[in-house]
Each structure stands twice: as structure tokens, then as C-alpha cells.
Amino acid sequence: MSTPTFDRRGLLLALTGLVAGRSWAQGGGPQAWENWKAAFVDNEGRVIDDGQAGISHSEGQAYGLLLAQAYGDHETFERIETWTRATLATRQDALMAWKWRDGAVRDWRNATDGDLLRAWALLRADRDSGWSGHARQAQRIARDIVQICLAPDPRIRDEPLLKPSDQAMATDAAVTVNPSYYILRALIELGDASDQPALIRTAAHGERLLADPGAMRDWIEVTPGGLAPADGFEDRFGWDALRIPLYLAWSGRTAHPALARAGARFAATSTPGHVATVTGPEGRMRQQSNAPGFRAVSDLAAARAPGPAGSAGQGYYPATLGLLAQIAWKEGMKRHSPVKAPTLHNRRLDGGR
């Protein structure tokens, strides 16, 4: 299996331009970052999710690190990482507990997307911004994701699936998967930098998984017979799944079929200026929003430059996605080599050969 390569010099130049104070995209300039930081990062470096009663979680800390690195804000990056190490990153492994509230960790299970995003942010800080001292921790996290958070696909035993947490169900009969946790570019770059080829193989298999229409859900189960709605979760394309097009665009997968499918979901809205944020399995709109951040992700799904990120007044989640969409558009504009997995493409995914 060959390893895709990214234009690291071009990425570094883009980052350098932003550090110098130039906006990457409309509505995604330094003031948007300052607004986000003022609204959602406290003095200690805790990222606050105002949509979930002010809790903090591994995903939010990782998003804060990614944004601080992209905007060249070294002080805020270190402040967020310091709080994270002192509170969430206190398990026996290198992964984070996922939930903090009222002064204490409330759930010690990890959320794999948070760990993947944090490791990627640490790698980018060391590699692209020259903020040394973070590469080793990124490697530790990558190693423990491989050791703890991968499981064999019941359809093809030697192809890995990304578990959403260390304790997620993974048996010969079914593996629970959150499709929005597949951040292909992060998996590939971390696998390359940390000498963890299993992460690159996970990205290749995940890219194929996301091409299945059955993966257009917040949660799925991968079974020997194919993909099915996950037991115990609402069958929908909603708050989790709407990140699928964001991460595919960020990874340069502009022709991936999931982008068009996501675009159709977003377009199911019934009100001008809104996008459908939750749709049922049949594609019908259940909830919609006019938040600029959600509309920015919808723009990515339609292969167009995202509109202004908007103010922090729209809430933590859409405000965060709006800024990430600006970065994804800039970094994903150039086509990157697709993940190559010759053994994968010659196999049927119903367990046959």
C-alpha cells in the first residue's frame, strides 16, 4: 500500500501567511478567531461548549488546538494544551477522557475523534508552526489509537475499522462506528509521521466505507452482511454526520460521493437561508438552521467556498464548524493523491473475494 503525500511546503506557506495576519477566506480572518476565543476559551485554556450546559470535552479541546495553530496563536495553543494535559489527558494511556464538568472528569471513556484531532494538532504545531516539543506526544497518541481504538471489519478481517471509543462494541458480529470520526487527512499524516501504517490503512478502508450510502448516518453498525443503523441510536444524518463533508473536503476528496449525498441532505431545507441539519434515513428534513457555521459546511458539500463564519453568537458548535470550514477549504483546494489500497479495491465488502 502506498502512502499519499501532501504538499507540506504549500501548507506551511499558507500557515505562514495566516500568522502574518492575512485572512485565508472570506469571514475567516483573525477577528473571527478572536471572537471565537473570547466566547469559548476561558483563562485557563478550557474550551466551553455552551450547547451542552457549559461542559468541556476532548473534541472541543482538540478543535481549540487546531484553530489556535491555524491562526498562529501560540499562547492560546499552549494554554489549551496545558489545561487538557492537567484534566482530560490523565488516563493511564495517552488518550483523553471525553467529558469534564463542574471541576472534574465525568466520563473516563475516550472519544477517538478528539484524540485523533488533538494528535493532529500537536503534529501540525511541531511540524508546520515550529512550536517544538509536541511531536512525541502526537506519536504516543497515534500509537494508542492503533492499539486501543481499531477493530477488524467483520466483512474483511484484515481491514481495520475506527472504533468511536476504547469501550465501543466490536465483535465478530458487529462493530459500532461513527462515520464522522474518519478524518482521512489526520489519519494519513499521523500514520506517516508516527510510523503507524495501520492508521493509513484505516484511512483507506474508511474512505471506501464512507462511499457506501449506508454510512450517511450519525452512527452505524458494520456487520458481516453490510452496514446497518446502530442499535440504540436514532437513525438519522444529524449533528455528528454533518462533519463528514467537512473532513472529506479538508482531505482533498472533492470527488467523493459522500459530498454529493451530504449536499442533497443539506438542501432538504424548507426555508430560504437555512440548511437541513438533521434528516431522516429517507432524506427528509427533521431540523434546520440558519447558523452561518452550518451553512459553511453545506457550502463545502456543494464544492464552493464557504460563506462568512459568522459571529460566536451562533453557539459553540456551528461557530467552530464555520472556522474549520474556512481552513478546510484553503487546505483542501489542491487535489491530494487518493489513499491507495490495492488489496482493498479487489475485494467485495460482503465478506467474499
Rank of each mutant, 00 (worst) to 15 (best):
N35M: 10
R243G: 00
T87L: 03
G352F: 11
S194R: 12
L187G: 07
K37Q: 13
T279C: 15
A276G: 12
R335Q: 15
R140L: 14
H256Y: 07
D158I: 07
H345R: 15
D231S: 12
L300D: 06
I244S: 03
R22Q: 04
P338N: 01
T90S: 13
D153M: 09
A119T: 01
G332I: 06
T82Q: 14
R286C: 11
S165N: 02
I156A: 14
Q147N: 15
L67A: 00
G54L: 09
P152N: 08
A70N: 03
Q92A: 13
A264S: 11
G232K: 05
D192G: 03
P197C: 07
L187N: 06
G310Q: 04
D126R: 08
D113T: 00
P292E: 06
A138K: 01
A193P: 09
S58R: 11
R127V: 08
E78F: 13
R286G: 09
R347T: 08
G51K: 02
W120P: 05
R243F: 03
E44A: 12
E189F: 03
L12N: 13
E44P: 10
T82C: 10
A198E: 15
D240K: 05
A86K: 14
S58D: 01
W250P: 08
W100N: 02
A276T: 15
Y63H: 01
A111G: 03
L344D: 06
S129L: 11
Q61S: 02
P281Q: 05
W120F: 11
R155E: 02
D128P: 04
Q287E: 15
M285I: 02
T269E: 08
G232I: 09
R8P: 01
A203W: 05
R124M: 02
A303S: 14
A211L: 00
W98P: 05
G293S: 09
G226V: 06
I148S: 09
Q69C: 00
I200G: 10
Q287F: 15
A135Q: 13
